[in-house]
Design a protein around this nucleic acid. Structure first.
Lengths: 177, 177
DNA sequence: CTCTTATGGGTAACCGCTATCTATTAGCCA
DNA sequence: TGGCTAATAGATAGCGGTTACCCATAAGAG
């Protein structure tokens, strides 16, 4: 979040609400879930860390005071460092994996059933993402983002197939043994 | 995290360190990054919420006191609810997307270069995951998990290809215009 | 016998995010 | 004109997770 805000400020100084709007526009449909208040918390921390400064540009006395923030040299340095680093979020498949293991171990549910339910959900999201991608203008950033979502969902569906194969075999062994 | 701990307790009561070991074993190489202290924080919260109870079973006086936790009826209910829900983590591609946009807008870096660097990193991780998968016994839970990681990385690499195509086109337009 | 290291178990502080609350501005409508 | 609603701008509290650190035991090394 901090890096995202700094990245927006690298283009031009803004106040909290404007930053929020720019982020949402940049992320398209995936930015819907962004919280408004988070921006201000993040800005306060960035200011405390000396990465941004607040230039009070409340020119109109009748408007609510809005604080316009801009990058400090340290902030620019951090943006450059962020751009230079090659990080990638680690896959978060552990939860479903544990769910299957727990269901089988405690005999609380049928793992193959859980996989089937999950596949229905992912197919639903896949259709939704494809529909949203069609609504975006071609070549837009949001459309590209949605393409990534679609590719991920397809990969996850393939993984569910593998899960089903694996847990079906376990069931057979239990029944057979 | 809470659900993961509850799921382990659904199979059998355990104390903190044992739970940590079981979780790590169940997750294979992906469990390496798990923090030990987190287990105790989580157990304390679960106890406060009335989902688990602590039966002090420190039979040997010379051993350090270890608290054995077990599910309460409310805890069993929550495990059942967790198994019933069909959730899936949302794709977290936004950070890289913002990185590309910020690099291009502030002219701090070449987006196509960033994509190339990211591709190198993902290929490295892909090789690593495939190697780890070969080290796991076939049919084990950890092996299945690693297969999911591999499928995801392959999907992300395809997305990077799409990113490169999109941002190359943008560069052409800028140069041409 | 002491020093060091590894293991087992725990606590506290910090950080990020979400939800919620306040206050002002603007638009609408009766 | 008064009252309702939405949008804008900002602040706060609480939850969940991670990190860093602390305490005790056990095993070796000198």
């Amino acid at each position: 979040m901090q890096d995202a805000v700094l990245a927006m400020l690298a283009k031009e100084p803004s106040h909290g609400y404007h930053l929020h709007a720019r982020l949402r526009r940049s992320l398209g449909p995936l930015g819907e879930s962004m919280n408004r208040g988070q921006i201000y918390v993040t800005l306060a921390r960035l200011e405390r860390a000396g990465l941004v400064v607040c230039e009070r540009a409340d020119g109109l006395p009748e408007r609510p005071e809005r604080k316009v923030y801009a990058l400090t040299p340290a902030g620019q340095q951090r943006v450059a460092a962020w751009l230079a680093e090659v990080g990638w979020p680690k896959p978060d498949l552990a939860e479903f994996h544990l769910k299957l293991a727990a269901a089988a171990a405690a005999r609380l549910a049928d793992p193959v059933e859980l996989v089937a339910a999950q596949r229905r959900e992912l197919l639903r999201r896949l259709r939704e993402a494809q529909r949203a991608a069609l609504a975006e203008p071609v070549g837009s950033g949001a459309g590209l983002l949605l393409e990534g979502v679609v590719l991920r969902l397809q990969a996850d569906l393939r993984w569910l197939d593998a899960c089903e194969r694996a847990w079906s075999k376990v069931d057979d062994e239990v029944e057979g043994g």
